[in-house]
Design a protein around this nucleic acid. Structure first.
Length: 449
RNA sequence: GCGGUUGUAGCUCAGUUGGUUAGAGUAGGCGUUUGUGGUGCGCUUGGUCGUGGGUUCGAGUCCCAUCAUCCGCCCCA
């Protein structure tokens, strides 16, 4: 019996129409990556599980897709192993996993190729990643990440370049965005000033959801962690402070006077902003925390202004990404474009092209075997001149080929019948306005070039 | 991992308190004086009602389970 086919959970097919839209966004991002001097690399979909495990926290480890060993994966398993729980057992029958992000494979790559790469090394990578997450709106089990990183330089010029890159890409995509920036050091300074330096992670997680859940919930969560109410009230004033980036920095300076690291963070933000000629869509936001634990310096996050859709860009500076692969002291900074969400947002705002600019321009059609042969050779002449075209494959009612061209959005149909073969001309019909004209091959080539 | 929503034709959905051969629109196919598409008209192919159990004389409709879906939460892009 035939069973109804379906996609694996959380995965999607992309038909020709979707691919036109996706390729449009991908190509613009790729173009700007290269314009800023980033070099393309790819890494395998499959990594050794040892490379991936422990890099994303306990939650992340659970979301890794694991690949069962091939062959008789049970041959070395004892009955004792079978009763010791899935965690122990899976270590013995699973050695590989699907990549969870592009950053960790990149770190492995840099560590392995350190002697051959030019440093600072700037790479970009656009590949799918997999997470065994529960799918939701804007969240899939297979999705593309689109990362650009600079590793091996701690200059703030790199941060400034990434901000320029961000602005260049969204300017061309014509999507209205805002970039929030902050520094992990400022956050550290804040926890320090609150006297709770050992609670940094809980503090960052609570702060990160302030916009979503409101101050009261964040306050309760922090006071349960042991933060003092009076100090939290002072914090509230800082978080709610409104003004220009410079005013916010000045305001925080007075609060962080005793925190060396906090002031250093503020200085970094000042410096990076001073590199940026256009600051209209850049906002210093103390509330920005970002979940990933490997960030150590400046962090940033991009959001669409016209549509609430979560963050569509994330990034920041990290100091020790490659140290777990045996390459210490490599400072890097990276930006990741959430391309699936960018596409979703732009699709909703109807900013994506509906027609394929690379589509065929002409469909050749005919009535008999003589016309068929003629069409094949005419098509190849056009192709030799860089014009994309196709030949309708079947001898059938001519109407069929017109419907086909219409559905595929092919703009012209060239008809070759006995009259055309006799005259040596081509009847070319414009499918948009319905007009028809007779052209020589030369005229046709010129018309479509 | 937790809570809720929804599963009927390729797609969007209707289907009254359980009651004969499960409907519509749209898409697809064929035709509409055969060398011309988009709009019209006529005909027509598609469904063991997500799957598996149960209650009943009788289940698309009620109950249980399971899978999928979408929406929240955790987390994340």
């Amino acid at each position: 019996m035939m069973q109804k086919p379906s996609n694996a959970r959380g995965t999607r097919d992309f038909g020709p129409k979707e691919m036109v839209k996706r390729n449009y966004v991908f190509s613009i991002i790729k173009k700007h990556f290269e314009r800023f001097g980033f070099q393309n690399i790819e890494t395998p979909s499959i990594e050794n599980l040892a490379t991936l495990m422990g890099k994303y926290g306990d939650e992340g480890d659970q979301l890794l897709f694991k690949i069962l060993n091939s062959g008789d994966f049970l041959k070395d398993i004892s009955s004792n192993d079978l009763t010791s729980g899935y965690k122990i057992l899976s270590q013995k029958i699973v050695e590989k996993g699907l990549r969870y992000d592009l950053t960790v494979p990149f770190a492995r790559f840099v560590s392995m190729n350190r002697s051959e790469l030019p440093f600072p090394f700037k790479r970009y990578q656009i590949q799918p990643v997999w997470r065994a997450d529960r799918p939701q709106k804007g969240r899939y089990r297979e999705f593309y990440q689109c990362d650009a990183d600079i590793i091996g330089s701690d200059s703030l010029v790199n941060e400034a370049e990434l901000i320029s890159l961000f602005q260049a890409i969204f300017s061309e995509l014509n999507l209205n965005v805002q970039l929030l920036i902050n520094s992990r050091k400022v956050l550290t300074g804040l926890v320090d000033a609150l006297g709770m330096i050992d609670k940094f992670t809980s503090f960052a997680i609570a702060l990160d959801k302030l916009d979503k859940v409101g101050w009261d919930i964040v306050k309760n969560e922090l006071s349960e962690q042991g933060f003092e109410i009076e100090k939290l009230n002072i914090l509230k004033g800082i978080l709610e402070f409104e003004g220009s980036n410079d005013q916010k920095i000045a305001n925080l300076k007075s609060f962080l006077t005793d925190s060396e690291i906090g002031l250093a963070g503020l200085k970094e933000i000042e410096d990076v902003l001073s590199f940026s000629a256009d600051q209209t869509n850049i906002n210093f936001d103390v509330k920005l925390a970002r979940g990933l634990s490997y960030y150590t310096g400046l962090i940033f996050e991009g959001k669409a202004v016209d549509l609430a859709f979560g963050s569509i860009v994330g990034g920041g500076r990290y100091d020790n990404l490659t140290s777990s692969f045996g390459l210490p002291n490599m400072s890097g900074v990276g930006i990741s474009f959430g391309i699936e969400r960018i596409i979703d947002v732009m699709d909703t705002l109807e900013l994506l092209p509906a027609v394929d600019s690379s589509a065929c321009k002409v469909l050749f059609t005919y009535f008999d075997p003589k016309g068929q042969i003629k069409c094949l050779s005419l098509a190849n002449s056009l192709r030799a001149n860089g014009i994309s075209c196709e030949v309708y494959p079947d001898i059938t009612k001519i109407k069929k080929s017109f419907e086909y061209a219409d559905k595929k959005g092919i703009k012209f149909v060239a008809v070759i019948g006995s009259e055309e073969i006799k005259s040596g001309l081509i009847s070319l019909k414009d499918m948009i306005n319905g007009s028809q004209e007779e052209l020589s091959l030369l005229q046709l080539t010129e018309k479509l070039s």
